Computed example of a mutant assay.
Amino acid sequence: MMYEKERQVSFLYDLAPDREDVTFLNGNPFKKSPRIFGRKFIDKTHHEITVETIDKSDRMECGDYLEYDNMVWLCLNSFSFHNLYCRATFMSCDWKLFWQDKNGNIKSIYVVDQNSTQYNSGESGNQYVTLGAAQHMLRMQCNDDTVVFDTPQRFVLDKNIKNPTCYKVTQNDNSSYNYGKGLCCITVLETPLDPKVDQLVKLPTGEQVWICNYHSSNTDDTQPTPPLDHDSYIVDISGSTKIRVGIPKKYTVSIVNHDNNSSLLSSVPFSWNIVCDCEVEKTLSGEHGEIITLTVNDESQIGKKVDIQILIGNSVVSEKQVTIADIL
């Protein structure tokens, strides 16, 4: 009986007209392109979509990030129906939060930013919002970094880099969405920028961002991590073996510890190298530059090969060959 249901679900899934190919879950391509439907505004700012998958390796959970339609989406909830398919609700992110950890590493995460000035700030003893003081609710994936966000940590939430507005964490609710990866719902209250310790920093991508309480790397007493032997980690490039003309294609590198499978992207210096005798547009993204987007716009290059390489030092430690294909 269950086998017949699986066949029926698979058959209908293959016929679904709302499947989307150019989508990524947590930076990785889906094994089977997902269905995406039910797009709507849930307020005057944010979109909501329903995403459905049937392959077990494509299962989604609360706290996952989806890249779709040139936007990043945060998973609010999901469920599996008799293990036949997984359905999830995603909400559009509208801000990328930047901060610096104690070792000097600049980190970032996409958040759903909602103005909550009419609500309590979360600080004890304050029953009313001070007139003129804005506050926001930031929803983001709960992980080792975000779960410890607490007062007096500050962030800049402003596109105006000449005179930005700064916000201080007043509450971190990480228990309301305590399933899957989970969410952190962080309340921040407007606070002054401190030009003595806050700094405008230029990232390797060329983007300029404000970092509150900026400091140099390894200002604490911890010792720098010694260089790793090449045999101690595994490097892999994920992504399609075809780049279709005119369609951007993303590739993601993972660098994991050989012994415990933990990520080493923040501690192993690497670089991308693209080998091809034609013009390929390249754009880096991701917290550590671990995602590269390649685009070929010249139809005369169809059939040519592109070698995507990861370099550590001067050594090629991983390589993937892809073919430039027609759009059809």
Rank of each mutant, 00 (worst) to 15 (best):
Lys162Asp: 12
Asp113Ala: 15
Val316Gly: 04
Phe30Arg: 06
Phe79Met: 12
Pro195Ser: 08
Lys242Arg: 14
Lys242Phe: 14
Lys56Glu: 12
Lys282Val: 10
Lys168Val: 14
Thr130Ser: 10
Ser57His: 13
Cys185Arg: 00
Phe270Pro: 00
Ile308Glu: 01
Leu189Val: 13
Leu76Trp: 03
Glu4Asn: 15
Thr53Asp: 06
Ser217Met: 09
Leu15Met: 15
Thr53Ala: 11
Asn273Met: 15
Ile327Ser: 13
Lys168Ile: 14
Leu138Met: 10
Ile243Lys: 04
Thr23Ile: 12
Val9Met: 09
Val129Ile: 05
Asp113Pro: 07
Ile106Met: 11
Gly27Glu: 01
Tyr3His: 14
Ile211Thr: 01
Asp64Asn: 11
Glu61Asn: 03
Lys5Met: 13
Tyr179Glu: 14
Gly303Gln: 10
Lys282Phe: 05
Ser217Ile: 02
Asp220Gly: 05
Gln135Ala: 03
Tyr85Gly: 08
Met91Tyr: 09
Thr187Lys: 14
Val275Cys: 15
Leu138Arg: 03
Tyr214Met: 01
Cys278Ala: 07
Thr170Gln: 01
Asp43Arg: 10
Ser121Ile: 00
Asn115Ser: 05
Asp158Thr: 11
Gln321Tyr: 02
Ile312Trp: 01
Val112Trp: 04
Leu66Pro: 01
Gly180Thr: 00
Pro204Arg: 07
Ser124Lys: 15
Met91His: 12
Leu294Tyr: 07
Thr293Lys: 09
Ile49Trp: 01
Met60Thr: 05
Asn257Trp: 07
Asn143Lys: 12
Pro227Arg: 14
Met137Ser: 11
Asp307Trp: 09
Asp150Tyr: 00
Ser238Thr: 11
Val147Gln: 14
Phe149Asp: 01
Val156Tyr: 00
Ser285Arg: 11
Asp150Leu: 00
Val253Ser: 00
Ile54Ala: 01
Gln309Gly: 14
Glu4Pro: 09
Lys159Val: 11
Leu183Asn: 06
Thr165Phe: 07
Lys320Met: 13
Met1Gly: 13
Trp73Tyr: 09
Asn105Arg: 12
Lys5Asp: 10
Pro34Ala: 14
Asp18Tyr: 13
Cys62Tyr: 03
Val316Pro: 05
Pro248Asn: 09
Val209Arg: 14
Val317Arg: 02
Pro224Trp: 00
Ile302Gly: 01
Leu157Glu: 02
Asp18Ser: 13
Ile49Cys: 03
Gln171Thr: 00
Gly38His: 12
Asp236Ile: 08
Phe98His: 14
Val245Pro: 04
Ile234Gln: 05
Thr191Glu: 13
Ile36Met: 05
Thr45Ile: 11
Cys212Gln: 04
Phe30His: 08
Gly125Cys: 06
Asn261Val: 09
Asn260Lys: 15
Thr323Asp: 06
Cys62Gly: 04
Asp150Gln: 04
Val209Ala: 10
Lys96Gln: 14
His82Ile: 07
Phe79Ala: 08
Ile109Asn: 03
Phe30Leu: 08
Glu207Gly: 01
His288Leu: 06
Gln199Asn: 10
Asp173Arg: 12
